[in-house]
């Protein structure tokens, strides 16, 4: 309560009240189901003080932004980078068999439009093979996805490069 009031009082005078942190409060949101980047502390500071410290980011998922990539490029580049930042959404979508994160994952894996519905269906069926526990890492999820795809006649073609 005290914090909220202070925050609100600040708004009375804060000249930067329209500002948002340019770099994003941090990478990730710290409330993850799956272990990933955490950063609630800095988000809190950022939303109260309306900014953040550190270098402002300027694009390029593979380099300058605040998300740690932790060498995940070795697991197939873009899919891993994307996966690391949407683990929560993806797990929910895959459990339900539909959703934007699941589509995005399919696209990042190079699955062609005509096979995406099939991809959604297959990964939905194998949800617990892909997300094996609450402590699954993005690397494990990625590897497990490829393993599942290799077992499927239509999807095997997209899993070959790994």
């Amino acid at each position: 309560m005290k914090r909220i009031l202070i925050g609100s009082l600040l708004a009375l005078t804060s000249a930067a009240a329209f500002a948002e942190a340019p770099g994003g409060p941090s990478c990730g949101w710290g409330n993850m189901l799956f272990k990933g980047q955490s950063g609630f502390g800095s988000h809190f500071v950022a939303s109260i003080t309306n900014g953040t410290s550190g270098n402002a980011t300027f694009g390029m998922t593979s380099g300058t932004n605040g998300c740690s990539t932790k060498g995940t490029l070795t697991y197939g580049g873009k899919p891993m980078l994307v996966l690391g930042s949407i683990m929560d959404e993806l797990s929910e979508d895959m459990a339900k068999g539909e959703g934007e994160a699941l589509t995005t994952y399919a696209v990042a894996l190079g699955v062609k439009p005509e096979d995406r519905a099939h991809f959604a269906q297959v990964t939905h069926q194998h949800f617990s093979d892909i997300f094996t526990s609450a402590s699954a890492t993005d690397a494990e999820v990625h590897a497990a996805t490829l393993a599942v795809m290799k077992q499927d006649a239509r999807l095997a073609q997209y899993a070959s490069e790994a």
Binding site: A19, T49, N65
Partner: peptide, 30 residues
Amino acid sequence: GAFIEGSDNSILYAWKGLMGGYPGLFALLP
């Protein structure tokens, strides 16, 4: 958005914000 370097406390922040003490920057992120 406004760009804050270091760790200004809230009061200083409010004051500097009012006086235009923080620079604004563009950022591009996912």
